[in-house]
């Protein structure tokens, strides 16, 4: 068990290290030199050279990489090229925004998808099942940003029942915070729910054909009771995997949705600083997203163990 945990941690650390190399190199390979981008039309060969030296860009790549990683291990993500701000200070206020957006979206997606997916599985030969499937197909075809624009125009601009965009911090006004998050959360959640419905459906369809389920029905349990008692836990195993993947997808989707709704989150930060080729900020944000995804993966594995007693007893090789 302990060896297994140590092994997982090792893989986790190796994944992070690998990701850091890829991210570092990818950011260096971005078109355009940050010093030139900063100087804009006051750039001359001399001012560019001076700026590169000031930003430390004239030093060899491996040195800069090692410094960057060493800094992160100390919790120091470096300073923005453009503004000299600490990257940590830039990122910190965006985390509650993106965090609440992602968490609420996932929650809403589950709340929508679970009952609808079950209905779709149980009533697959009836019109209800067909209707859910059609809706899910439709939902999957709509990109989150498009849903966002439509929702923003309809509820925000036409009906004026909800703010079409922007953000109010929770601490400032909880009610306004919630009102401002409704549309972005819904636009992210709808698409994710559509994807999730299909997984829920197939997970439960599988359960319906299992021996233990037939046995439960044979001893006289209703379909609903058999599903709740035996089905949910078994279906959950494959659903947790999908949810882990979906949370990653939501984080990526949040980048675009934040732009549509002008939310000052991680995604907006990423886009603003990408515009300025501010590599230090980009590296840190992408690294953070990778870390989030890896942590989610780890949590998913923990969830397996909690859900499936068979994994608890023996552990896995």
């Amino acid at each position: 068990m302990i060896r297994s945990i140590a092994g997982r941690l090792g893989v986790f650390a190796l994944s992070l290290l690998g990701a850091s190399v890829v991210i570092f190199l990818a950011c260096q390979a971005l078109p355009g030199d940050p010093a030139t981008a900063l100087l804009g039309t006051s750039a001359t060969p001399e001012t560019i050279a001076a700026k590169r030296a000031e930003l430390g860009l004239d030093r060899p790549l491996p040195v800069r990489y090692v410094e960057w990683v060493a800094g992160m291990l100390r919790g120091d993500f470096g300073r923005s090229f453009a503004t000299g701000d600490s990257v940590t200070a830039l990122i910190a206020p965006t985390l509650p925004v993106t965090g609440s957006l992602a968490a609420l979206s996932l929650l809403l997606a589950i709340v929508i998808a679970l009952p609808l997916g079950m209905v779709s599985a149980l009533r697959r030969r009836h019109w209800q099942g067909g209707a859910v499937s059609v809706l899910a197909q439709l939902g999957m075809a709509v990109p989150a940003f498009w849903a966002g624009i439509l929702l923003s125009i309809f509820f925000g601009v036409r009906l004026r029942v909800l703010p079409p965009n922007m953000y109010v911090p929770f601490a400032q006004d909880p009610v306004e915070w919630a009102r401002h998050l409704v549309l972005p959360v819904v636009s992210l959640a709808l698409v994710q729910a559509a994807v999730l419905i299909r997984y829920v459906r197939s997970a439960f369809l599988e359960v319906l054909h299992e021996d233990y389920f037939r046995t439960a029905r044979a001893v006289g349990w209703t379909q609903g009771r058999a599903l709740l008692r035996h089905g949910v836990r078994n279906a959950a195993l494959s659903l947790v995997t999908v949810l882990g993947l979906q949370l990653a997808a939501i984080l990526v989707g949040a980048v675009v949705v934040e732009k549509v709704f002008i939310l000052p989150g991680l995604g907006s930060l990423l886009l603003t600083y990408a515009d300025r080729k501010d590599v230090m900020v980009l590296q840190a944000v992408v690294m953070l997203l990778v870390l989030a995804v890896l942590v989610i993966n780890a949590l998913v594995e923990v969830a397996y163990v909690l859900i499936d007693p068979r994994l608890r007893a023996g552990g896995r090789a």
Partner: peptide, 11 residues
Amino acid sequence: VAAVAAALALT
């Protein structure tokens, strides 16, 4: 792999 791919896609 998906995690790294997502990161690259973002970049």
